[in-house]
């Protein structure tokens, strides 16, 4: 079970959060066209390693968090607010 350190509420159980997908991606502008949106919605690196993720703290502050999690060890190295730039490691998938 993950324990996620919410910057607002402190460390809470995974069950208080809702996973909201890959936070390494930026939604394209709508002018970017079909190919960009297809890539945005459907294409995933699915890395074995560091992964930047969106987690919404639905049972707490209802804030959207960025979580840097290792998909193999489940280690969480960093949790930040939605607008914070994440300190991505070298080997983090794009």
């Amino acid at each position: 079970m993950l324990r996620i350190h919410c910057p607002w509420c402190g460390t809470r159980d995974e069950s208080e959060f809702r996973y909201r997908g890959d936070a390494g991606r930026v939604r394209p502008a709508h002018e970017a066209g079909l190919a960009s949106f297809s890539a945005h919605v459907y294409e995933r690196a699915n890395p074995r390693g560091w992964h930047l993720e969106w987690w919404l703290h639905v049972a707490g502050c209802r804030q959207l968090l960025k979580v840097l999690r290792h998909t193999q060890s489940h280690e969480i190295r960093w949790v930040g607010r939605a607008e914070e730039p994440a300190p991505l490691p070298e080997d983090c998938a794009p």
Binding site: A23, R27, W54, L56, V58, R62, L64, A82, E83
Partner: peptide
């Protein structure tokens, strides 16, 4: 509600 909160905080900051 979760969808709206996500969109607001991720894409409409």
């Amino acid at each position: 509600l979760e969808h709206l909160e996500f969109q607001l905080q991720a894409n409409c900051r």
